[in-house]
Design a protein around this nucleic acid. Structure first.
Lengths: 156, 156
DNA sequence: CGAATTTTGTTTACAAGGAAACAATCCGCA
DNA sequence: TGCGGATTGTTTCCTTGTAAACAAAATTCG
């Protein structure tokens, strides 16, 4: 116990190894890495996919509501939407009732893109060597939903 | 079902609401927000704390090993360590056996800072209105550990 | 009505983090 | 010994995301 730590599994984490916040960060990085090793860097990035996916299920959704649900800040959402608009995937509409707002819908190209990407996005989660079996993964999902307050939401 | 979605809990997430990757992102943001609403923006940031904490428990740890364990990329670790060094919390030492490497230890000021911050960091997780009870939180932690491959590691 | 406040989105400036190229050192092996 | 490759850390550049100030429209409430 005298030589400096030089190997990964000698590192002592103490309480940190039991910290929800720390483990969440590691887990997210892992999920991210898994995703990118499956689906190369081509195609939609996770954030872009989630935006298109939610617009597809909620046509005409307001930009602010979309941002709140996905926890994307307004400043960032502006850039994200502009990128998707430039790519020809979403169209913006200013409603008459509230001319500050922006209502979002997918273009046909956007619809097509989401369909294609959805297969990759939702398949990799199961197929990839996720170290959890189905039961464990279900429990994890349930706990995370409760943690983030996503319980009785409309999900259809 | 005709008017555009304008309220948060009307938003339909579909499969996305059951996605581990998506939920992990939301959860991490929530944990982050919780932390910053408890402990103001003063003091150590989460990344800085984790670095100091691990150095405290593993004096002389190499910068590369620290980065691997905390999943911090080398380029970023360089900046983090420099910041901590400038703050007077960390000292760097080039060992003779391998003059590429850097061995890290805390200064007395660094030790003191970690002690002080640890209270905040580990207390907020329990105390804050975490929507999970103790049992649920324990299960969540266990599942996350398994997910990230943090099982038999030394944690003392 | 009409001034103060709030909401919505954009812009601008910045911080956090990652990718790639680089320099220095060490290791393997003929 | 010495050359090729791997490791370690740094630098530079770029992407992602945030904070703050702003503009325009809507809302509140006297």
């Amino acid at each position: 116990m005298d030589a400096p730590v030089r190997h990964l599994d000698q590192v002592k984490l103490g309480q940190l190894g039991h910290s929800v916040g720390f483990l969440l960060r590691l887990a997210q990085l892992r999920a991210f890495d898994d995703f990118f090793s499956e689906n190369g860097p081509q195609g939609l990035k996770p954030g872009e996919f989630s935006v298109l996916w939610v617009i597809a299920r909620n046509p005409g959704i307001r930009q602010s509501v979309l941002g709140q649900r996905l926890m994307i800040k307004r400043a960032h959402m502006t850039k994200l939407i502009r990128t998707m608009e430039d790519a020809g995937f979403v169209s913006r509409r200013i409603p008459d009732r509230d001319r500050r707002a922006v209502e979002l819908t997918l273009t046909p190209a956007g619809e097509h893109q989401v369909e294609k990407a959805a297969v990759l996005f939702f398949d990799y989660e199961q197929s990839t060597g996720a170290p959890l079996d189905d039961r464990e993964q279900a429990v994890l999902v349930a706990l995370l939903k409760k943690y983030v307050g996503l319980q009785g939401e409309a999900q259809g």
